[in-house]
Amino acid sequence: MKSVVAPVKNVAATQIAFETLLQRSMGVPGIGLIHGPTGTGKTTATTYLYNQVNGVYVSARAHDTTISLTSRIVEELGAPPMYRISKCVDYIIEQMSMFERPLFIDEADYLMNDTRMLETVRDIYDGTEIPIILIGMDQIARRISTRKQFYNRISEWVEFRPADLEDVVTMADYLLDDGIKVDEELLDNLRMSSSGELRRITIGLSKIESLALANDLEIVTLDDWGDQPFHGLRG
């Protein structure tokens, strides 16, 4: 399998939203929210994006405090850990502003459990106006709507959805070794078996590729695959 990011609809929507944040008009807020169920490719899409734009990436944790989160952002910016929130925030604002480095916060649902953490992220945005991207599960959009001061700073909302057949075809085209093709009926079977989860689709494509290589198949059909499972054990 090739080590690339397939340009499925969720990935394209993420890139468009980020470009919109960069090119926004004066007065338009610059925070974006990416949300959706697990397995839909949020982390993969944003990891690819922040690497392209020299972004700063951190993942929030269940037991984070404001100081632990801001200290990790400081470390990602290349400095030793700091142990006062005010020093951390000042340094983050200085560095993000000086080098125009957007901030990506994964597992942002955990911010909802601590008003001070959420308000600190808002302070960082207000001090820089450099885009901040939050990545969270499908309930974060509802939860964040109750925090009006923060909610009003979000101008781009991207909801990640399960892959459709067109996405699975795109993934097969981009991820499988050259010369290996998969019949669309088998790809749709994989989509249904995976409930559209990109992680599980990727695992299934890897197994299809192994079957093709082991049997010297140029195109793999549903008949070639048979009734073997794409994931886990045979039922």
Rank of each mutant, 00 (worst) to 15 (best):
G32W: 01
W157L: 13
P81Y: 05
I34R: 10
P29L: 09
S145T: 04
E129D: 14
I201W: 01
R122L: 12
S68H: 03
D64K: 07
R143A: 13
T38V: 15
N51H: 14
E166Y: 10
K87W: 05
L198C: 10
V5T: 12
G78H: 02
D223G: 10
E94S: 13
G55K: 05
V58L: 03
T66E: 14
S86K: 15
S155R: 08
R147K: 15
D123C: 11
D106S: 08
T43A: 09
R147G: 03
F150V: 04
R84Q: 13
L165C: 01
E218M: 11
K181S: 12
V158T: 08
I85Q: 05
R101M: 11
Q95K: 15
S210H: 10
P37D: 15
S210W: 05
I67K: 07
G127D: 14
L233N: 12
T70A: 09
K181V: 04
R147W: 08
P131S: 04
G179K: 07
T128E: 08
L233W: 13
I124N: 01
Y50Q: 14
R143C: 08
T146D: 12
D216K: 13
D227C: 09
D223K: 14
T170Y: 00
R72Y: 02
A60N: 08
A6N: 02
F150N: 03
R61K: 15
D64T: 02
L165S: 05
D164M: 04
Q52F: 04
T20E: 14
R142C: 11
D106M: 09
A163P: 00
K2R: 15
D223R: 13
D164Q: 09
D106Q: 07
D90C: 05
E156T: 12
S145W: 04
D90F: 06
D167W: 00
V28F: 04
G30P: 08
G196E: 02
V58K: 02
F160P: 03
R199D: 04
Y110M: 04
F18K: 07
G127V: 14
L233C: 10
L190I: 04
R191N: 06
L77F: 00
V28L: 11
T70C: 06
S97G: 05
S155I: 01
T40G: 10
Y48K: 15
L198V: 11
L233H: 13
R24E: 00
R143K: 14
W225Q: 01
Q23A: 12
L175G: 08
A141F: 11
D216C: 09
A60D: 08
G36Y: 02
C88M: 02
Q228Y: 09
I85R: 05
A172H: 02
L69W: 02
V11E: 07
T128M: 09
Y57D: 06
L118C: 10
I130K: 07
D227N: 15
G27E: 00
F160A: 10
A45V: 00
N54E: 11
E107D: 12
Q52C: 11
A45C: 03
I208N: 07
D64I: 00
V158S: 06
F160E: 08
D167Y: 00
S71Q: 13
D123N: 13
S193I: 00
V182D: 04
S145A: 15
K207S: 09
G235N: 11
C88H: 01
R147I: 07
S68T: 13
